[in-house]
Nucleic acid binder design. Structure first.
Length: 425
DNA sequence: TCTGGGGTCCTAGGACCC
DNA sequence: TCTGGGGTCCTAGGACCC
């Protein structure tokens, strides 16, 4: 059976590398990127990893390392998204089939008969990313997504690989590679699966690859079955799922300060509705179900934990912020309890369908729908022209107290005319 | 004192129907 | 004096990913 060449490009320490493009001072020193509220570490430079800083570690635990030269940046997602698009563009020069998997990873298909060999083609791609975008990357090449993930693991872990690992069509290499990869590092094997696999004596990726697939299906479910097939070089996971239309849209934030003030909480919820519906309308979709959640910190030892979620299903799917806000307000009053120190609010839109395919029956108020459609597109246009948040719903502005901290945010170099990098020459 | 935000898919269990 | 079986739809929750 003919096999396709499935490659993966994965940016090294993506957010830190992206910050370094615009601030050369950050090279060669320990740098981390902090999540919203500057609370958690979501990217680390090699130097930061060497200081034993862990992924997802709370920042306050490593703050003392600032004395040893640690530098923090607040996450700047608009900037990262922009650079990510350029990353995809570069890869499109090398492959006609590029499928972006995450902000820093792309799968792509290569021609098996690549003239100078797949490995040197991989090196060329890596060099081009470094030259054009100043982004270091690892390249994995094999015949399945899961194997290419394994290749990438080795490309990063073993400098001798030169950052490119190609095992396409090489059975011996595949076995050697999988032998040195712990099963916990296999794409799709999380904590729970790893514990269960270890308990039946499977600790390496190779042992997993040799595990009976139907037995695995029975004990672990369909996903591990697929993983095993993929580890054996079979392309099972769909190459190009449609990422352009989300099936659920989430908007949530930790609050800058814990509070039980209803106005503040509702104001944060209104802002979530705004962001979520813009995204919904941009993909030409409507949603039938709104869920809302409020919660206190899971980690606080002194406070009682409270998490409550409620949802509402509309008679007709909608993308109208005002309708969603009204529903959110009702849900909020249903689940709100005073005297808790709330730390986070969130909403989720589900039951999403394309605007075109929605069928309305004779009771649907067409006039009102048209009126709101015009209002929504006006809001979107004004926000596009004058910047995000230029026009807001009343509730949104009622309180700013929930806004989160980001004290070390780099400028939005590529997304805002006011924040372009200044080059002196 | 201080622990993110955004997704996907699968599964189990309840409601309801015949 | 004894508790069908199969199907569908929905929801909540879990596991995983970055």
């Amino acid at each position: 059976m003919h096999k396709r060449v499935i490659a993966l490009a994965d940016l090294n320490n993506a957010f830190v590398s992206m910050e370094r493009i615009f601030d050369p001072k950050l090279h060669g020193i320990p740098v981390v990127t902090a999540s919203n509220n500057d609370s958690m570490i979501i990217a680390r430079s090699y130097e930061a990893k060497a200081l034993n800083i862990k992924m997802a570690q709370p920042y306050f635990q490593v703050k003392h390392l600032e004395k040893q030269g640690l530098v923090a940046r607040s996450a700047n997602f608009p900037l990262y998204a922009n650079i990510s698009n350029r990353f995809v563009s570069v890869l499109e020069n090398f492959s006609n089939h590029v499928s972006q998997y995450s902000i820093d990873e792309c799968f792509f298909i290569l021609n098996q008969k690549e003239i100078n060999g797949l490995e040197s083609y991989g090196q060329l791609i890596k060099k081009t990313l470094l030259k054009h975008l100043a982004l270091p990357a690892g390249i994995g090449i094999s015949s399945s997504k899961t194997l290419s993930k394994c290749c990438n693991y080795a490309a990063k872990k073993y400098p001798a690989t030169g950052g490119v690992v190609n095992i396409f069509g090489d059975e011996e290499k595949r076995k050697r590679l999988l032998k040195v990869i712990p099963v916990s590092e296999v794409w799709g094997c999380g904590k729970a699966t790893t514990i269960k696999l270890n308990s039946i004596g499977i600790t390496s990726a190779l042992e997993l690859a040799n595990f009976n697939p139907s037995k695995a299906r029975e004990l672990f479910g369909i996903n591990l079955f697929k993983t095993i097939k993929e580890l054996n070089g079979n392309e099972v996971i769909e190459f190009e799922p449609d990422y352009s239309v989300s099936q659920s849209i989430i908007a949530s934030r930790s609050l800058g300060e814990k509070t039980d003030d209803k106005t503040t909480l509702m104001s944060s919820i209104a802002a979530h509705i705004s962001r979520a519906t813009v995204k919904l309308r941009n993909q030409n979709s409507v949603s039938k179900t709104l869920s809302l959640s409020i919660q206190t910190s899971k980690h606080s030892k002194n406070d009682a934990h409270y998490f409550k979620q409620a949802s509402f299903t509309f008679d007709y799917p909608t993308s109208d912020s005002t309708k969603l806000l009204k529903a959110a307000s009702k849900l909020f009053n249903k689940i709100y309890q005073p005297n808790y120190r709330y730390s986070k609010t969130g909403i989720m839109l589900t039951n999403i369908s394309s605007k075109k395919t929605v069928q309305n029956d004779m009771f649907f108020d067409q006039t009102e729908s048209e009126k709101n459609k015009v209002l929504m597109s006006t809001i979107d246009q004004l926000n596009n022209r004058y910047g995000k948040g230029a026009l807001k719903m009343g509730t949104e502005s009622a309180s700013k107290k929930w806004n989160s901290q980001s004290n070390w945010r780099s400028p939005n170099y590529t997304g805002s005319w006011d924040e372009l990098a200044v080059v002196k020459c």
